[in-house]
């Protein structure tokens, strides 16, 4: 099963993603793509860690380049999140191609997969060429995943809108 979960900031998409992952018994793998550098990201990471405690997750902090990571032993892989992964590729020594390689690797190798992405689509402002390209790459990647997902869920402040599949 592949799940795609999107939503705005603080829409509870991470919490839902974790709850969905917990439907699969056994050891789960949590791939955290956020760079662990600033105080702010450290506190976000701590919050997410506390949320996962006792739920049988192994945490792998990896910004990108998943090829070779052993996924077969886990009942489900949770990727948090596609927006960070996309930025890590586009702005930190990768490309759109290498971004898709990571996505495809997860889709091929994980027994079950939950992908969290960010909804950044509803603003008409043009920032810079790089940012426009980031939005485009992230959203098209989400479309690519949505097409191949069993379930596509939009989170709206704790409420789930099911666009595809069921819960």
């Amino acid at each position: 099963m592949i799940y795609l979960i999107s939503g705005g900031v603080k829409s509870h998409k991470s919490k839902w993603a974790e709850n969905i992952a917990c439907l699969f018994p056994g050891e789960k793998l949590y791939i955290a793509t956020m760079e662990n550098k600033s105080e702010e990201s450290k506190s976000r990471i701590e919050k997410h860690r506390a949320m996962r405690k006792g739920k049988n997750f192994k945490t792998l902090e990896l910004q990108k380049d998943f090829k070779g990571v052993e996924l077969a032993g886990f009942s489900v892989v949770l990727l948090e999140c596609l927006g960070n992964l996309c930025a890590n590729h586009l702005f930190n020594g990768g490309s759109e191609e290498s971004f898709y390689e990571d996505i495809k690797y997860l889709m091929e190798k994980a027994k079950n997969l939950v992908i969290v992405t960010n909804d950044i689509s509803y603003e008409g402002l043009y920032y810079t060429k790089e940012i426009e390209n980031y939005i485009k790459t992230l959203n098209y990647a989400s479309c690519f995943i949505a097409e191949r997902s069993d379930n596509v869920i939009e989170m709206v402040y704790g409420n789930a809108v099911i666009h595809k599949g069921s819960l």
């Binding site: 909804d119 689509s121 509803y122 939005i135 485009k136 959203n139 098209y140 479309c143």
Partner: peptide, 8 residues
Amino acid sequence: IGGAYHNK
């Protein structure tokens, strides 16, 4: 209608 780059 829909967000930018949503394959409309």
